[in-house]
Every structure is written in C-alpha cells, then in structure tokens.
Amino acid sequence: MRDYLLLAPLLLVILAAVPVVLAARRARRRHAVQDRCLAESGALPDMVEKVRVRLARPAWFAATDARTAAEGAGWLALDAQHLRVIGRFDDGSTVDREFVRSQAPPQWRGLAGAGHHGLHWFALGEPPLLLSADGLTDWHSARTTAALYRRVAAPGAPPPPRPVFHLQSHPLSLVTVLLLLALLAYAAYDGLLAPFALIGEHRWLTGVALACIPLGLLTYPLFRRARLPPRETLLLPLLIGFAVGLALIPLLARIDRESGDGEFAEAAYFFDGGNAFKPLQVGTPTISVANVDEYTAALKPGAEQGFYLRRGGLGLWQVETDSLRRTVLLWYQGQNKPPPRLRVH
C-alpha cells in the first residue's frame, strides 16, 4: 500500500506537467511563425530592440468561438522615436505597421473582453492593433505585458491598473466555488460529526483521496475553454481535486455503512495500558484513541470494555463512538476538567 501512496505525488507531477508541455509546443509553433515574419521583413537597421508579441484586432475579440489565445504573433521593434510591429495573423494576412512614439501612446486594455484566454493587452494606433507580451505560458501575462507597456509608454505615464478577477464574475468559476463549498461542508459534516470512526487497515482510502488531487487537473481543459485567467485555470481544478478527495473518505465510509449485511454488534476489548484497546476476538481490529491521555492513564491495564463494530460492504471496519464519547465526557466532568476532543482510529 505504501508503494501506491508514493505514486500519488508522482501522478500529480506528471499531470501538472501536461499543461506546461502543451504550452511549450504552442510556443515553439508561434516562435517559428515569428521567425519567418522577421526573415521576410528584411533587416531592421533603425531598430535597437525586438520583442516577441502576440497580436489581435478588435473585431477578433467579438468572436465568441475563438479557440486560441491570440489572433496572431509577431515582433515589436522599438527605438527612441519609433515603434514597428510585424507579424502574421491566423487567417494568413500579415501586418507591418510603424508608429511614432510621441503620436501613438499605448492604451491599456487589460483582459480586453470575454475572449481573452487570460492574456492582457494594450493597443497602438488607429485602427487599434492589440499587443500582448509573448511567453511560454499565459500565467505571467499581466506582469510581462504591463512591463512591455511601461517600456512603450512615455516617461511619467500612469502604470496599468493591477488586474483583479472576481470569481463570481464568470458562471463556471461561480459554480466551482459553490461546488467547493458544498464538498467541504459535506466533508466537515459527515467526517467530523458522524458518530462512527474507521478502524483497522484502510490506508488505501488515503491513496484514493490523494489521487483525486492530480485527477482534478482533468478538468483543466474545461476551465481553459471558458477563458478564465491562467491562475484560476490551474488552481480551481486542483482545488476541486482536493475537495473531492477530502469528501471522498466520509462518503465511502457512509456507503460502507449502508451496504453489506448485518448490524453493529458488540465486541469485547481490553485496555492495553497505552492508548489502545485490543480485541478479545481474533480478526477484529485494534481501536486506538487520542487526545484523552488523562482518561487512559486512569484506566487499569486489562480492563475490559465493549464496542459496537461492523464491517460493511466495502470491507471497512467502523466503530460506533457515541458511547465512548459519553464515557469520556462523564469522566472529565467528574474531574472538573473540560473534555478534549476524542479521536478514535
């Protein structure tokens, strides 16, 4: 079982690397297009610096079925007085526009509408040509595009506003937040308040719960198609996996209790002198308690106590904890001490 648990972080790394690998492939294709445009444009003797950019036109953002993050790719060449943009759009058309810096101040557009895919933009000239700093992924688009904007803008121009995304502003992120709250509420209710505890060997449940975290990344394409910002596109699937894993253990425990034959039956145990009760019947798991050291210190080794157990349809052993909690509560009340939270496992 330990080997399976060790595979969970490896699976997380592999699945987390998938978006990076796909982004790297897309970046290589863009760079090939940009390099061809640069070669076709000839030398740029007056330009002292060239920056890879992604391109778009205002009409492109109105296309709700846009499947790519940008309409094209190219270069921004700049010197002290001039800017020049060369590139190619996805429809095969090319662009080669030159601007006088003093006459074409950049206009910050930010996410620029529903079709942003997480990219941030600024516009140059009329009709406006939108530019976004190119990079391996869209994760740092706000920072890198803002840095490029400041290099293009005149000295003393106000910096672009800090981007803020509200989760309630998009239906998918809003539904995801509500789902997360529901899963966490269920995990807290059925995991902490249920009068039953899992005992015995059930580490495979931990492995299944840990595996849910990387498996949450399977929803990554859904968030990317919804064009959420890059951070939310990655973090929300991970949070979904975490919440599902957290709720899965109490859910499987409930399914185990509701399935199988028989009812909870009393089994005899004896106290081992530490923090555990050993079964008198062979094949019944040990019951360990925690956070009640004063109570267990007052028990005599070998003292017998009965517990109600059941092995359900999933093969999990569970013990009813209400009677033990009442016993512990009465003991601490008799000692005039506040009762701690009993843990049974």
Rank of each mutant, 00 (worst) to 15 (best):
Leu12Gly: 05
Val13Pro: 01
Val13Trp: 01
Val13Arg: 03
Ile14His: 01
Ile14Asp: 05
Leu15Arg: 00
Leu15Tyr: 01
Ala16Ile: 07
Val18Glu: 00
Val20Ala: 04
Val21Asn: 00
Val21Ile: 14
Leu22Pro: 03
Ala24Thr: 11
Arg26Gln: 15
Arg26Asn: 11
Arg26Leu: 00
Arg26Cys: 08
Ala27Lys: 15
Arg28Lys: 10
Arg28Thr: 07
Arg29Ile: 08
Arg30Ile: 02
Arg30Thr: 04
His31Met: 13
His31Phe: 02
His31Cys: 06
Gln34Phe: 05
Asp35Pro: 05
Arg36Ile: 06
Arg36His: 09
Arg36Gln: 09
Cys37Asp: 03
Gly42Leu: 03
Gly42Ala: 09
Ala43Lys: 07
Ala43Glu: 13
Asp46Met: 13
Val48Gln: 15
Glu49Phe: 08
Glu49Val: 04
Glu49Pro: 05
Lys50Ile: 08
Val51Asp: 10
Arg52Gly: 07
Val53Phe: 09
Arg54Lys: 10
Arg54Asn: 15
Arg54His: 07
Arg54Leu: 12
Leu55His: 06
Ala56Lys: 12
Arg57Lys: 12
Pro58Thr: 04
Ala59Leu: 12
Ala59Thr: 11
Phe61Gly: 09
Phe61Ala: 12
Ala62Leu: 13
Asp65Arg: 15
Ala66Lys: 13
Ala66Tyr: 04
Arg67Cys: 05
Thr68Pro: 01
Ala69Tyr: 02
Ala70Trp: 04
Glu71Cys: 07
Glu71Arg: 09
Glu71Ala: 14
Gly72Val: 03
Ala73Arg: 01
Gly74Gln: 00
Gly74Asp: 06
Gly74Ala: 03
